[in-house]
Design a protein around this nucleic acid. Sequence first.
DNA 1: CAACACCAATTGG
DNA 2: CCAATTGGTGTTG
Length: 155
Amino acid sequence: MLLLASSAKGVCALLFGESAAALEEQLRQRFAAARLTRDDTGLGDWLSQVLAQIEEPRRAARLPLDIRGTVFQQQLWRALQQIPPGQTRTYGELAAQLDSHPRAIARACASNPLGLLVPCHRVIASDGRLSGYRWGLERKAALLKAEALAQDEPW
DNA sequence: CAACACCAATTGG
DNA sequence: CCAATTGGTGTTG
């Protein structure tokens, strides 16, 4: 199940979870100070764009994003968005790019509230294997496979 | 503020 | 294969 949340400025969260209740809980934790209002219809348009992107990774959804986070996180997330579908970076590469440390990269990825929209699943370990994923390695592997596949397809 | 714990890593022994 | 190290962040005193 999927939860899409937005602020006045844009999409601020895209989470996976077991149930609606579990998702709301995640959301509440991530934005403790926010006043949450439910909107089952207004976000439908954005949501459908997100879903379309999942099926066609190369069509990156151009949604307004409202990314809340530290400077470091924003740098990383911006860097992640530069990674084209079907490609991957290692924690080490990103660390070098941001003049930081792999462990810090991982930590920042793990706190990315924008599942899919910030392609944190394109980050892999230095030996080329998948390491971890907030919403399950299964999902990470599936996403990467889908993207790699879409890359081969002639458009 | 400082101290501490928590990790989706990496490197060296 | 294990352990030591490392850095950003949230929590706690």
